[in-house]
């Protein structure tokens, strides 16, 4: 007789559950917990010791970079959600020739690495860019914003839109038209219908898509690296500390912080949306 057979049914179930969870737990430990713990320890193992975690928050440069990254990601998330909700709803509710091709094209940016996105921003708003040429012709002065926060913002919005728009479209397909008709029959204007019926119904999808857009913007590197010069976001700061200044402890501490903040943002979104983010994110 086996060992499990002698246990009562409940402990047998827990044992079986533990056995089934073991592979996932091992992977989680090997590729997430251990590296993170190691990162945390390396952060505290430099010349400054554990004080580094206090220093990065008081260091002007690091703090600026952290705040800039947070503001950028929040802005990207807000604009992406606004643009994608309007576009996603429109695409679900209107069929026209070329509809399928347009939807496929909107998902295009997903395939590009950050470097290519950066390159596209430069082609549009760089020194030799399209917008520069047009403004030169019209006003005589060249408008160039590719190498600034504005350029980075545009690039991030561009590659965040597909992720959000696909989630919004999937959720919008499931909206019950009768709910909107009921609200209208009770006197609700089209705007009220949006506020009282459509947005609440889309809320879980918007929260999960927004969390993904936020997390991606927090950690994205390729685009920032391509546009470089005047941009000070956290992934760039980490890169500089790590490769150029060989300040490994600070780089590790910043990485740990980046992970922590992003995780906190996702956890916050999850607590608002119930369990739906866990499934989507």
């Amino acid at each position: 007789m086996s060992v499990t057979a002698r246990l009562d049914p409940q402990s047998r179930d827990s044992l079986r559950l533990a056995a089934l969870l073991a592979p996932t737990a091992a992977l989680f430990a090997a590729f997430f917990l251990l590296p993170l713990a190691r990162l945390f320890v390396i952060g505290g193992g430099g010349d400054e010791g554990w004080a580094v975690y206090a220093t990065i928050l008081t260091n002007r440069n690091h703090l600026d970079s952290l705040i800039a990254t947070l503001l950028l990601s929040a802005g990207v998330t807000a604009v992406t959600l606004a643009v994608s909700t309007v576009a996603g709803l429109f695409l679900v509710r209107h069929r026209f020739p070329g509809h399928a091709i347009l939807v496929a094209m909107l998902t295009f940016p997903l395939a590009f690495p950050g470097v290519v996105i950066g390159f596209m921003v430069i082609m549009m708003a760089g020194r030799q860019g399209l917008i520069g040429a047009i403004t030169q012709a019209l006003t005589g002065s060249k408008l160039v914003f590719a190498y600034s926060m504005t350029g980075l913002f545009l690039g991030y919005v561009y590659f965040s839109i597909p992720r959000v728009i696909l989630t919004v479209m999937a959720a919008a397909e499931k909206l019950a038209p009768r709910l909107e008709e009921a609200a209208r029959s009770l006197g609700a204007s089209p705007w009220r219908v949006v506020a009282d019926v459509i947005l609440p119904a889309l809320k879980p999808a918007l929260l999960s898509a927004g969390a993904i857009a936020f997390a991606t913007s927090m950690g994205a590197f390729g685009t920032a690296f391509t546009l470089a010069t005047r941009i000070n976001v956290l992934p760039m700061t980490i890169y500089t500390e790590f490769t150029l200044q060989a300040n490994i402890a600070t780089a590790a501490a910043l990485s740990f912080l980046l992970g922590l903040i992003t995780w906190a943002a996702l956890a916050l979104a999850r607590s608002f949306a119930g369990s739906s983010v866990a499934a989507a994110g």
């Binding site: 019950a176 009768r178 008709e181 009921a182 209208r184 029959s185 119904a201």
Partner: peptide
């Protein structure tokens, strides 16, 4: 007049109650 200005009451097969 669109429905929202006709002052009608509607009841649907699917109830259509606001879930939120």
């Amino acid at each position: 007049l669109p429905i929202e200005r006709r002052n009608v009451g509607m009841v649907f097969q699917s109830y259509a109650l606001f879930p939120n």
